[in-house]
Design a protein around this nucleic acid. Sequence first.
RNA 1: GCCGAUGUAGCUCAGUUGGCCAGAGCAGGCGAUUUGUAAUCGUCAGGUCGUGGGUUCGAAUCCCACCGUCGGCUCCA
Length: 666
Amino acid sequence: MSPHLTVTLPDGSQRELDEGTTVADLAQSIGPRLAKAAVAGSVNGKLVDLGAPLHDGDAVAIITPNSDEGREVLRHSTSHVLAQAVTRLWPGARYAIGPVIENGFYYDFDLPDGARFSDSDLERIEATMREIIKENQPFIRSELSVDDGLALFADQPYKCEIITSVGPDAGEVDAAPEEVGGAVVVSTYRNSESFVDLCRGPHVPSTSKLGHFKLMRVAGAYWRGDVHRPQLQRIYGTAFETKEALEQHLFFLEEAKRRDHRVLGHELDLFSFPDEIGPGLAVFHPKGGTIRRVMEDYSRKRHVEEHYSFVNSPHVTKAELFMTSGHLEWYADGMYPPMELDDGQQYYLKPMNCPFHTLIYKSQQRSYRELPLRFFEFGSVYRYELSGAVHGLTRVRGMTQDDAHIFCTQEQMGEELTRLLTFVLDLLREFGLSDFYLELSTRPPLKSVGSDEDWNVATETLRTVAEGAGLELVLDEGGGAFYGPKISVQARDAIGRTHQMSTIQLDFQTPQRFEAEFVGRDGTKQRPIMIHRALFGSVERFMAILIEHYAGALPTWLSPEQVRILPVRDDHEDYAHEVASTLGAVGERRTRVEAADEPLGARIRRAKLEKVPYILVVGDDDVAHGTVGINTRGAADPFRGVTVQDFSAYLTQEIDERSTVQYGAN
RNA sequence: GCCGAUGUAGCUCAGUUGGCCAGAGCAGGCGAUUUGUAAUCGUCAGGUCGUGGGUUCGAAUCCCACCGUCGGCUCCA
């Protein structure tokens, strides 16, 4: 009788198994369907191959493809198939790393003779991948010593570098060597005589488990993300457990494309980027300008309520200011080159507003009684973004921040930050975003100033405040600004994508550099703490996110045109204007009457395409009874015979409450 | 900045292996039509084919450089 071992399953039940039983055997003993679906196992929280042996006391779960972990295994294995396909098509190709990423995977290659992938190569590679999958190749794991690993991958320099890079950053590479039982080993997975890859695993038992994949695009990528290292050719792909899941993902990508603010911004005539002006520099057309105005007006109103003081500062300044602030030392790459004036004086376009607000603080002697001082400005800043980095309104070279700098005492800092976080989240909710998490960015390892102690105090204060907000908190190691750590609010939009919105940064440096002071209760001079914060982030970026969140169908209060009134015949036109002025009698109502020189259907269609929230049709019946026919955006049928008073009352409430619920919606 | 793709009327796109004055739909102007819920009809105008070089008897089409755009890398609000 063979010895026994006992394992625990996720439901808490226990199973007695023979010694030497593998994860695959366990799956088989639970059920043949599970065994067929299984791609990997989880033993004591660690993902392993199906072939991994079990030990007494293990907590085991069978991983199937329809889970996050299962899809990861699937994608990771598919990336190996991609690498094998590339080495078949380009003999001598070197393969670097091929990790799983959100929604897919990639693999980086260095092709022989400096060859490059083009889009048309993707089909060929996919075809070869399908052949490999059909060949039903096994994934065979081996563990080797470092020396044997180096010998095996002698003609693969990137693999060798990974093997030898046992160091602090080794963990970022999925295939890094591990210590097993005191000895450093590397693990490999062999698919065939000709293809073996360095990898931590786990993998599916055979390529036949794969199949629902698609290569998405090619791109250049620096080896280990370092601009100074060779640039490799990266292929992105994705894989799913079923054809349906893959198609659903592709549909999601289409949906994201449909919401693209650059496309909608053009279609809805909101803004453009004329070549004559330059990359990343937008102009806002009347409709886009109206949206901005409404956003900014509302923001101003809220800042007044939160006791901010409104300040203003110029767009250019002498170089000296940015020397003092440290920007020229730390941020010069992000700044436009200086312009030189006749007297040899250099002037810079400002990339940030903080130095200006600090000077306003310093314009007089400050007392502790005045603090906290909160200086707010819609400040336009210019940043010299790399030409490849600009992207619609979300990454531009000229933008307007809803920027403020709060000067307070160390004691006030915690409460001020807590208030601020409440303010931010409220404001974002008022614009219709509701799903948030927070990110805490800590000291950048290379570019930063200040003492460790200051950084620690600042970081811990932010952490405490963030935790107090009761939201999910994610750590962004090394992602802070050069002068201090930050909390950023991340928002999930209508289709689940996350966007970085507001940032709140703590800064002990700027007050020091500018020698900002206040007189304390005891009469001594003390240094204030500075909080940088932007709630929209930038007005441009926030508008882009709203456009994508709402797919262009902005809530009525934000819509550039809220109501379009269509007279059926031209003798209804006077009445149409009457309706417009009745609606406008209670405040700003952005209405337009479109004359009856085209069939009604054509005018309705145009208004629908322009995503106007309300189309009012007025004809004989309406003139006779003082009513309108309401065609609500998104509604299937119009509502006929509603009195102008009733509609106006509804509209007033909807706009005042910044509601997203339109007339007639359930 | 780097890698790849791409650039034809205001917009969306045709334009076969280089070969008559470069086409269509929508949008725009003009005229007619007076219309009850997603496209009324006619007519006119509109392009140095991103820019600059080159190859050729001949270039939107082939080559080079630059500019812009798109997808990534890096960076970031």
